[in-house]
Structures are given as structure tokens and as C-alpha cells.
Design a binder for these strands. Structure first.
Lengths: 161, 161
DNA sequence: ACTAACAGTTCGTATGTAGCGAAGTATTCT
DNA sequence: AGAATACTTCGCTACATACGAACTGTTAGT
């Protein structure tokens, strides 16, 4: 095993440790979320796609159009999504996150930010620069990852720098 | 605004960008999970506590004991948790994650690890050392955070590094 | 203009889960 | 022995997901 492999293994292990630490935190929003998993999946899909047609959304969710209608009805009722007629084809309904829906997903996805900020506040100037440098190089690599995102497993074991 | 504040704001923003990137990934396990949110909450609680008594678990979940019995029944039926009589008090049932339950939670919490590994594989030796150093200092800060974990919001916007 | 295809909604049906309180059973404590 | 405790079962309610069939409105093709 090379030094590189050791370093990578070490990084992966510390990453894993941190992820578990956060997942187990009672402040994890999963502990207070008042949605069902299919609803959360829907909101995440909308977050990824922006505006999407009903047909596409039901296909992406893997359910029938009739089921999707009911689900969107309930999300609309909660004010988390909006539904509009497509300007180019009046048969089509375009669905997207509402402001509150976007806020909820953002808070959910970026959970832990306050704790992270607190930790950054306590770093020395040098360490802070190291972290900033590290983040900069990793965000570039993550966002520009040439592999199709089907090969990895993602979730709120969301790795970051 | 000081240079430190700028650095911190920059880190938080790149962090947020990465977290959204991963959350939107179709490989996010939230898109394929066949559990309900209360079930997932239960599993995460068990992950945090190890072995826990039925009464404690129902209190932590904020539901009645009768409800918790049903929920644990269904998780036992899925092979994700085990239930045993407490050796010190035969009235008490101790519940804990089974092997498969532990695997599922680990995979869930550390989702994205494969993509992360791929990215690390492509870093230069110098950059890899930077990331390792950064991880080392942050994991220490995260795990030893003196603040009670009630003040922050956590989830799979799980910051790392 | 007419017809077929398409997108979405409504309706009826089925299933599963969460949630409760009351009653029952087994165990522990006084 | 009796009271308190921990859990389970039962009966009930509510909600959400999921489906296919039928329906309505719109678009595209002839």
C-alpha cells in the first residue's frame, strides 16, 4: 500500500467519523421533518430540476401520473410547491419549488452549517486558510467531476471538503 | 468585514455548493430508500444510542409505547433491528440495530464516499496532503465541539473536512 | 372539421404505516 | 399480597401512497 493510499484511507475514515457524528446529532433535521419520504424525494427532484412537467416528475419518481397528481396536490396545499400551466402547451402542468419549499430544502441540505461556522470561528488564522484552500480545490473537483453521478452513492453522508 | 470573516463566508459558500451538488445527485440514497421517515429516525436514534430500552426509545421518538411497539415490530420484521429482554430486568426490552440495520445506516450516512474517493484519487500528492491535514484538524474540532449539539442544524448537509 | 393522441385530474379501490388509549400479561418493588 | 412498572395486543382513526379506469381539455395530424 502506497503513501497515497494511506492518506486517502485516512481521509475517508475521518470523513466517515464526522458524518456519523453529524447524523447522530439530535439537531439533525431528519428528526423534526414533517414530510414523508416520497414528499422529500419529490422536493429534492424539484430542487435538482427547477421547473418540471408532471409527466417527467412522475417518471422520475417512478409512479403513475395519477399518484403524482395526489402528491403534488398535498405539497401545493402545504405551500411547498407551485403548479402552473405550461405557456407553450396548455395540457402540461409545470411544477416547481415555492419560496418556502426552496427554503426548506436549503436548510435541510445545508444542515450543520451553524456548527460548522462555530468551528471555523475557533480555528487559527493559519488553519482557516488551510481549510479555505482545501475547500476551494475540492469544490472544483466535486462540481467538475467527469464521472456520471450514477456511480456513487450520495446522501447526507454528503462529503465535503 | 475582516479577512477572517471573508474566509469563513467563502468556506461556508463552497460548502453549501458542494452539499447541494451531492443532494441533487440521482445516486442520493434518499431516492431509493424503502423506509418511512419515522423508521429512518428510529434507525438513526439506535445508531446514536446503541442499545436502548423500549420506554426510552418511545420517549426519544415522542410517541406512545404502544406505537413504538408496532414500529419496532415492523423493523424487526425487516431484519433491521433486534429486540431482547434486558438481563437485569425482564420487563424491559432492549432494542438495537441488527447487522443489516447498521450496514444500511452506515451506507446512508456515508453516501457519496465513492465519489469522494474518486476525487481524492485524482488529486496531486500535495493537494492530497492538504486535504488530509484539513480533515485531521476539522474532525478533531467537530468531535470535540464543546457546544451542546442542540444549537445547530444537521442533516445531510453534513459538513465535513 | 374531424379524429387520434396526449397531459392531467378525478374517482374508487387497496395497502401500509403511524398514532392513540384501554385492557391485558408478566415482572419488579414495597 | 398488592401496587407499580414495562411491554404487548386490540380496536380505532387518520393519512399517504399506489393503481387503473374514466373523464376533460388540448394539441397534432389528416
Amino acid at each position: 500500500m502506497s503513501g497515497r493510499d494511506d492518506l486517502i484511507a485516512q481521509i475517508m475514515e475521518t470523513q466517515r467519523e464526522m458524518q456519523h457524528h453529524f447524523a447522530n446529532d439530535p439537531a439533525n433535521p431528519l428528526f423534526t421533518l414533517h414530510l414523508t419520504l416520497p414528499q422529500l424525494k419529490t422536493l429534492l427532484l424539484l430542487s435538482a430540476h427547477g421547473s418540471i412537467a408532471g409527466q417527467e416528475l412522475s417518471a422520475a419518481m417512478g409512479v403513475s401520473l395519477a399518484t403524482m397528481t395526489g402528491m403534488v396536490d398535498r405539497l401545493v396545499a402545504q405551500g411547498l410547491v407551485t403548479r402552473h400551466e405550461d405557456p407553450h402547451d396548455r395540457r402540461v402542468r409545470r411544477i416547481e419549488l415555492s419560496g418556502p419549499g426552496r427554503d426548506l430544502i436549503d436548510r435541510f441540505v445545508t444542515a450543520g452549517a451553524e456548527k460548522m461556522r462555530r468551528i471555523l470561528d475557533r480555528l487559527s488564522d493559519d488553519d482557516l486558510r488551510t481549510v479555505a484552500h482545501c475547500h476551494a480545490l475540492l469544490v472544483n473537483a466535486v462540481v467538475n467531476d467527469p464521472e456520471p453521478p450514477t456511480s456513487g452513492c450520495v446522501g447526507f453522508g454528503v462529503p465535503s471538503a
